[in-house]
Amino acid sequence: MTTAVLGTDLAGALRQRFPDVVIDADDIAVWVTPESVSDVCAYLKADPDHQYDLLNLLSAVDYVEYFEVVYHMTSISRNASAVVKTRSYGRNEPTVASVSGVWRGAHLHEREAYDLMGVSFFGHPDLRRILLWEGFEGHPLRRDYLEPPLPYKWPHGG
C-alpha cells in the first residue's frame, strides 16, 4: 500500500533544507511559498530520502481570496506519496513558480491550469491556452467567472 506521507513530517524535512519556505502543514499537505515551489519540488525529486519522481497531479483551486496549486507526487521506489501546496494571493495574475523543469509531466497540467484558472507559472517554456482557443476571454474555472452574454439570440426566446 502506498504510504501517504504526513504533511507535518514532510514539513520537518523541508525546514531543515529550506529554513523559510514552509508556511503551514497539516496531516495531508505542506504549504510552501509560491516562489520556492520549483526548488522544493526539485529537492523532493532528487533527494535520496524522498525521490518523488512521479508527479501524479497538478491542480489549481480557486478559494476566492487566494489560489491554491496542489502537487500530488509519488515515489515509485519508496511507494510513498506526498502532497505539496502553495497559495498565491490576488485575483489578477496569481503567479507560481513552474515545476515543468522538474517534471516534464507538469507541462500540460500547468498549461491547463493557466488556461482554465488563470494561474501564471513563471519559468514555463510554453505557457499558452490548451483546451480553449486563443483569444478566449477570461478563465472559466474561476469562481467569479460569468459566461459572457451570447452575441446572438435564438429565434424563439433565449
Binding site: L57, S59, V61, G105, L108, E112
Partner: peptide
Amino acid sequence: PFRCKIRGPSFVNLTL
C-alpha cells in the same frame, strides 16, 4: 464539490 479536478491518463500520456 467545491472543485473536482480530473487527472485523465490519456491527457498526460500525450506529453511525450
